[in-house]
Design a binder for these strands. Structure first.
Lengths: 149, 149
DNA sequence: GTACATGCAAACGTTTTGCAGCGAA
DNA sequence: TTCGCTGCAAAACGTTTGCATGTAC
């Protein structure tokens, strides 16, 4: 599934919001970079360099917020650092991230299915199976350290 | 298992650190409030009200950091807001965080044990079972929205 | 006495907010 | 024309750091 900038703008319009140059710029970057982990700062820089236009950071945050309200975008806080945004409709990219070296390991999606179902039955919580990051230590870093932190 | 303030201070001493009034105050709160999700700000307030003494926030952070180095304390980032601290010796639990309302649900660590073991055997990755949050929708928010499945 | 720890204050990175003017509808 | 949106600047937030003083050992 491919989301275009127009899809995003249409979602904003259907919320009764106006289509402005700033919102076009943000949506263009979000559509262009889909599949990546976007940060507000990264989007801001893209707009400045790729498009040469100037949009304020507060406007970027406000637009991302509107896109989240529309349900097309979600953000997560993966530990330290800025929040990361990605399209809700993106393909699953489940991975675990090494907190020491930053390496990402892909894991089979099905392996968690049973647990997700149990969690839903016991707590009502709907785990988002398409996107979450788990931290830990990759094989290399685990061998180098005694797990502590 | 009950951890006392002295356990914590002893751990600091064995790192070659000095026992000071500020560290006593922080350890007292951590020991007293075990089982709860502590924040740096909450610890600071406890010290001020419960004990009437004054400790600077930077000292609280530095002491918590030292306790983490000792391995007795861990912290997690549950999305928005401040980091939460809890004793390592406490019953391990995962945090599941609602991406809509930010509510955090604690779940027993054992429910993931099988999966963690499989992951270690297949990829060598050592999941840190206390330091990650899984995103999803809590029961309330899931009921309010139709999940874009 | 000598490191080390502290309080203070200021800096930090990320995000939010107040406001006057601009611009989409 | 109207009200929503914008840029700007400043504040808010949680956390970290530099430094002179204080204190455990």
């Amino acid at each position: 599934m491919h989301i275009t900038s127009n899809h995003l703008l249409e979602a904003l319009r259907s919320q009764g919001l106006r289509i402005t140059a700033a919102r076009r710029a943000v949506c263009a970057v979000v559509a262009e970079r889909q599949g990546q982990h976007l940060t507000a700062a990264g989007i801001l820089e893209d707009i400045r360099s790729d498009q040469g236009s100037k949009v304020d950071q507060s406007t970027v945050y406000r637009t991302l917020d509107a896109l989240e309200t529309s349900g097309l975008l979600v953000h997560s806080h993966l530990g330290h650092g800025p929040a990361v945004y990605h399209l809700e409709a993106e393909a699953a990219h489940q991975h675990v991230v090494c907190r020491a070296c930053g390496a990402a390991v892909s894991i089979p999606a099905e392996s968690l299915d049973g647990w997700i179902i149990i969690l839903r039955e016991t707590t009502g919580f709907e785990v988002d199976p398409t996107h979450f990051a788990i931290t830990g230590l990759c094989a290399e870093c685990a061998a180098r350290r005694v797990p502590a932190e």
